[in-house]
Design a protein around this nucleic acid. Structure first.
Lengths: 229, 229
DNA sequence: CGAACTGTTGAGAGGCTTCAAGCCTAGTGG
DNA sequence: CCACTAGGCTTGAAGCCTCTCAACAGTTCG
């Protein structure tokens, strides 16, 4: 396993840490451990005890819960600049989600003790942290409403738009995150076959173009209409 | 509108405040404003600007989002000891839910400035706050998984069990919170008619007994089986 | 080259929603 | 005191959206 680059161990770009004193930031850097994780590596598993949280500095991590019959429900994807595992850590519970690498990633592990130190030492850090959790909570509540009230078709369109907002597009309007049909289904909360059928309908309707797992956006306005936003 | 009783303005029972110094608690008490709210009163509405958060010291408040065609999605109910409106406040966003009284309530309004003061002044307060939000986030994530993967029948059974955990039962095992069929539907994320049909099936199966809006639990073990927990 | 996984398409079944009609209860005003 | 109205509750019927099962094509990888 190769070592992370300098840039990939640098946490100074994280909003969360931008109000730390030099001393606090020093302690953070001293305590952290950064490693490269290959695709498909499980960072932590549902039910395991966490020793700290992770800062994502490269790659993409999928966060999901295991439901009925082992079916995954994807909660979110974390990319550079985001943190994972903090929720269960702060609650001092066992992990209630699993985190799996889907694009080779670099993660910096920050021990629980360090987190506690920062909370005690710097109110602005706590405040930032509160805002991060609150944002995630709003998104979760929004998603509950969607999933409870919208059709699968609407939800899929919305998920596509969400992906567009959260991940890079190349200059051809093609999404740079590569998901399987099953993963899309596990975001939307539906069957894989339904996703396949709907995607090809979207393609027929000239909303998107498909090439394997690559999704190219052709008509965002109408996609929003389908999503019923 | 009558005045709240002494007991109804007392915030010392709130976990959230139990690490405050005498001085901080004094400031909280000085800044707060407690009032009685009649059934059906809207405390705040989606899209409105919040000036503080509220501590519930009596009654029950329904928190919901308005989705497609004005259909409510109930996010949670808040009762004595819980706080509401804090999420949007901390994010400094407009309210993304509406709060409506369903059982005559007493709420104590705490201004945003006081919240900020407490966050700055007492790290244990921030830490408590973080734990509250994290707990709610876990519940939201759990609910997403349920709603995405379970049938309406399973979800209704689960909601009934959830209500049993969160609200009082009398000595006859009858739930002391009174909800309309529509409200149950808006928790489960289904049509009112479906709730009605399923409730009478549960009744036929001797899982519950119904008397108007009163729900009496007869066979919790089997209700859990139906909920697929 | 086979194994394993992913993607695709079709058919059939069934869970839920929607629409419609009627009942019941509680609160209101004459 | 009683008819009246409104809102909640209930039931039935029709239909559709979505899931499941099954078969098969394509891809990747050891």
């Amino acid at each position: 396993m190769n070592r992370p680059t300098e840039h990939e161990t640098d946490l100074s770009g994280f909003q969360l840490f931008n109000k730390l004193t030099e001393e606090e930031f020093g302690r953070l850097n001293f305590d952290k451990t950064c490693s490269v994780y290959k695709k498909s590596t499980v960072i932590y598993r549902e039910g395991s005890r966490l020793t700290g949280f992770y800062c994502v500095t490269r790659g993409i991590v999928k966060i999901f819960k295991t439901g009925i019959d082992g079916k995954e429900q994807i909660i979110r994807f974390a990319k550079r600049g985001e943190i994972i595992a903090y929720r269960s850590l702060l609650s001092q519970e066992l992990a209630c989600t699993t985190a799996k690498v889907i694009d080779e990633a670099v993660l910096c592990h920050v021990p629980y003790q360090t987190l506690l130190f920062l909370i005690q030492s710097n109110w602005q850090f706590s405040h930032h942290m509160l805002q991060i959790v609150c944002k995630e909570l709003r998104e979760a509540n929004d998603y509950i409403t969607d999933i409870a009230q919208k059709t699968v078709r609407e939800r899929l369109a919305e998920v596509l738009l969400l992906l567009k907002e959260n991940f890079e597009l190349d200059n051809q309007n093609t999404l740079q995150i590569s998901l399987t049909r099953e993963e899309l289904a596990n975001m939307v909360g539906t069957a894989t076959e339904s996703v396949i059928r709907l995607l090809s309908e979207f393609k027929q309707d000239k909303l998107i173009e498909l090439q394997g797992r690559k999704i190219k956006y052709l008509d965002i306005a109408n996609l929003q209409r389908v999503a019923n936003i």
